[in-house]
Simulated assay, not measured.
Amino acid sequence: MNDEAGIAKYEEILRAAGFRITRQRQLILNILNDSAGHPDATEIFERANRIDRRISLATVYRTMKVLEESGTIQRHAFEGGPARFEQNDGEHHDHLIDLDTGEVIEFASERIEALQEEIAAKLGYRIEHHRLELYGRKVRKGG
């Protein structure tokens, strides 16, 4: 989302769920809105805590849970790491996770999508939803 309309949407969802938009929740929403990657709850908490020491990790978790249940953010449980969150912009993409750094790289491939559809059709299925996660290590040149 990365804009004021995105924050307003988050606020609307929280209010509908019975939450007040406190300074701490506003801070969480700003951090989430400004995040380009896939932060986990602890990263969101640590960034918020540097600005407002009164924020609690529980507030971060409760806020993220409501946003996840509404479908505005997606929760990912990448292998071997904490749950990470990303804004749900409606555009499908897959993930490559660097096993050495933990970096999450988003990518999209029409060839992969077509192959998945082909395989499902051959087996007599129609894909309703899927998630592809690749785990790898960067290949070093000359090594």
Rank of each mutant, 00 (worst) to 15 (best):
A36R: 11
Y10D: 05
G80M: 03
G102F: 06
Q24M: 10
L29S: 13
L32E: 10
R137F: 00
S56E: 09
L67W: 01
I51E: 13
I31Q: 08
I105L: 14
R15W: 14
A120P: 05
R53T: 13
E103D: 07
A36W: 12
D34S: 12
V60Q: 04
G143V: 03
E43N: 13
L32A: 11
R131K: 04
R23E: 14
V60T: 02
Q74E: 11
S56K: 14
Y135P: 00
E91F: 01
S70P: 00
K122R: 08
L134S: 01
K122T: 05
G142A: 03
A114C: 03
I127Y: 06
K138V: 07
A36Q: 14
T22R: 13
H95Q: 00
G37F: 10
D98I: 13
S109R: 15
A83H: 04
M64H: 02
I51G: 07
R20W: 14
I127Q: 13
I97K: 05
H93S: 00
F45V: 11
G80I: 08
E68D: 04
R131V: 05
R137C: 00
R84M: 08
R111P: 07
K9N: 15
E133A: 04
I44C: 11
L99K: 02
V66P: 02
E86T: 02
L123V: 02
E118Y: 07
K122Y: 03
L14T: 12
K141A: 03
N88G: 01
G143D: 00
V104D: 09
L57D: 09
E103F: 01
D98L: 01
R50M: 10
